[in-house]
Amino acid sequence: MVEKVKFKVFRYRPEDGGKGFYKEYEVPVKKGMTILDGLIYIKENIDPTLSVRYSCRMAICGSCGVRVNSLETLACHTQVLELKRRVIRVEPMRNYPLVKDLVTDMTPLFRKQKALMTWLIRQDNVEQENPTKQYLQSEEELERYLQFTYCIQCGLCYSACPVVSTFPDFYGPQPLMKAYRYYADSRDEGGEERVRLVDRFEGVWRCHFAGSCSAVCPKGVDPALAIQLLRRSALKG
């Protein structure tokens, strides 16, 4: 059974400047078809100038984050018929500089991750580069951070966060979650340094637990939980 669904897609051409506009496309939809399939249909059959970023089409790579009907989601992870709407509005993610149409520049996210040193810190560099033994972890030690390793860096949480929208200096959910992922890792030795980095005006204190990050995460990672746990560590000093 084929249904017609109207895609209302945000269009923006940097060379034209301005605010951008919405353009409507009618797309025949079958059961199982995703938003990304619809966008690719538009690009192949109706309007080849539409820009959309995607890669794996199976919610692994985190490239195709968009806002569908005002809610952040991966375009490849959302089936059109499940939305039960005749008109579907597709917009680029918020809080990022816009490149073109649905493509956003994710640089702020990665820059903030780097600022929070989201990698394993060891005091002994020689041992870290050429380890002489295995560094085993117990099941409990693994559980403390395992959930946060599921992050695919799609940046949906960063787009949903109301604080990043209003106060762009805030580190945002994903970088802070990543910082906690390493803070909670038993192999990591950056403890105090990490707390010092997030204990700033732009750090954990700007999170007001609006939970939008966790609500939109397609992988079940819970950035809001990680930030609260990070804040607890910062409060303990």
Binding site: D199, R200, F201, G203, W205, A234, L235, G237
Partner: peptide
């Protein structure tokens, strides 16, 4: 004042 102390306050 540090942000942490303000939050505790």
């Amino acid at each position: 004042m540090r942000e942490r102390d303000l939050m505790l306050l």
